[in-house]
Design a protein around this nucleic acid. Structure first.
Lengths: 208, 208, 208, 208
DNA sequence: CATGAATGAGATTTCATTCAT
DNA sequence: GATGAATGAAATCTCATTCAT
């Protein structure tokens, strides 16, 4: 076989891999993560059920693939909301807000980012770990930047704080989703107001 | 029927209700929430499948029953860790620590408390709402107490802050679980140290 | 035991038998014949499931009991619509119309009368046969009367013709139920008009 | 895939579809319509339960498929008994007789044709409606033909009369089945004699 | 590579009937 | 007589995965 042919094949293979993920995403958006079945994915991708198993070893792998996507999309949200911001403290605040919008606009991806480990018993693969690392690093650098400008306490570990912010935010968004009725009813706060209150408090806790 | 007999029956029925919940708990501990099936529960309880449906109308009801249990247990943890503490601020810190221990020692219950609404699309029943209300109230009163002693900022809404702490904690515990390897590797922190760092920061953010 | 006591007991027993049938009827009216379960019947009768089995050997027996009731009710309809009619031919026509109204007003009973044998594989008991015989006799006598007055052909066998009318009517009502949409759409006939057409034709076929 | 292969597959698929219907028919013949279950059908067809669901979306669809078969078979009976007959009135009589033989020889099919709508609450699909339309049309044309030859009354609507004959016949066959013992015992008539009496009377009622 | 028929375990739920109390 | 807990077979349907073509 000529090398160009092999390359073409490689490209075609990659294209199908992506097509299957696209299909899976469509299915999850419609029927939820637990409503996703290989059958539906195959139908949405207009291929046969068996073909899915050529590109993925199992259903889990598809979910893993989508989770990587989801994490990449989150990183894009971070960049979109933080890069344009000059003020380092506002940059940090926008990490939270990026996540807020990610959650509102990309429910499916958010679910995957937040719950991947809970839902599947699987280990993180190298690719999954990589996508996670990129996010951590990005967040860390933003905090680090504010620290170097002496805007936040010097005893703060940027990496660690990134984790904390990340964990807290996931938890808050979760509770917002679950209890939004009560928030409105008992405290008269919209989800956005509630989240704003949370962001200000959180950031204030590390600034000088 | 003699009254004693009726009473005996009532007790026997209650005992079986509890036995089924125990069986369900055992199954979840082994196979996870999504791995729980009526079949397995019945087998674990050593009764027929149909018998389960005498005591519970549906699978959902079993999960709801366990969730109430889980919430009650969490409240006990709160009481255990907070009631003995005199200092109002330490009391607040111990809310976090109670949850930490709850999470470490009662994984299954923690999962149910944290994710009940996510996993099941169902409305909360009166019993469920009650168990939720008791927790909220307990936490709120502890924060309120510290506020009345002018130890935390007067602009803090105790109820709202309770929600925030609760949400944050769930998120942090989740991330601890997921990323504990990284925490140790990159920051040299044990999960306990990490959590302590989080608690101190969080409580500091509302104290005067 | 004193005889009066035995008698009282007998009456009480009969009363409960009837109460169970009443309950079963209520259930069928609500959920259909196939939706009837012993459980529902017992609940509707406010007795225990096991008690039902004291008065009836099986579910089938309950249905048989109701079928007898249904047949008796039909006989009442016949009497109601025919006895007041003087003209012998109109009397015959009213046999049809009695059934028409029975069908419209007593759907549950009609179903039992029309389909008892189809739905259950059981033999007719003596009671069932009796209730059937009463209907046959009543119809036969009406036809016989018209025959004796030389209003219908003398080669008609009243008993046989009763069967034929009875069978035909059940069939027509059935088709009316099934195809009423088409009757209206294609022939512009209401079910009543259609039935009237059928009655006139049928009776005309035996008159002189 | 080579065209021959695709075609072969298509044929194999059709063959299995038919095999499942055959199996279902066998089961119904043995246990009745209400005694048919997917399990039994699968066992009779010697395939796995799940396989049935590749060919049919639900149990209802199997019944619908069989009902189409049944209606087609009835149409064949009509053609067989009527086409060979020259005399228009005898043609009409043979509609009845075709049904009589259909009922005697194809009990299962007769039940499906007579009760499909009663037993299942479902809408007719296009295929079902089509099979029904073909029968109606066939019967209508036979009556229409006799009418055009001035052998039956001109006030008769062929389509409507078709419905009436059809409904009446179903009802009569039903009663024959139920009461054949009584017919013999009280009137000394065989079912065939009884049916003949019915046919003559019915046809006479519309002839000139 | 691609297909999709086949599998068969397993899910939830119902229900007539029995039987110890 | 009365109770209702217990049974367990049976019902419908789903679905990840395999494999012959």
């Amino acid at each position: 076989m000529k090398p160009e042919t092999a390359q073409k094949k490689e490209i075609a293979k990659e294209a199908k891999y992506i097509a299957i993920l696209n299909a899976a995403e469509k299915v999850i958006k419609k029927d939820g993560l637990s409503g996703m079945s290989i059958n539906k994915v195959a139908r949405a991708a207009k291929i046969a059920k068996g073909t899915v198993y050529i590109y993925f070893d199992s259903k889990e792998e598809i979910i893993a693939g989508l989770t990587i996507r989801a994490r990449r999309t989150l990183l894009e949200y971070f960049k979109k909301y933080c890069d344009r911001e000059k003020d380092p403290i506002d940059k940090i605040k926008n990490i939270f807000w990026a996540d807020y919008h990610f959650y509102k606009e990309q429910k499916t991806y958010h679910e995957l980012v937040a719950f991947y480990e809970q839902k599947t018993g699987l280990q993180e693969t190298k690719d999954l770990a990589m996508s996670s690392f990129e996010i951590s690093t990005y967040v860390k650098e933003i905090i680090e930047d504010a620290k170097s400008k002496k805007l936040i306490r010097k005893d703060i570990d940027s990496g660690l704080q990134g984790f904390i912010f990340w964990g807290m935010t996931v938890g808050i968004l979760q509770i917002i989703d679950t209890k939004k009725g009560q928030l409105k009813k008992y405290f008269g706060k919209s989800t956005k107001e509630f989240f704003a209150y949370f962001v200000e408090n959180s950031v204030a806790s590390i600034t000088i």
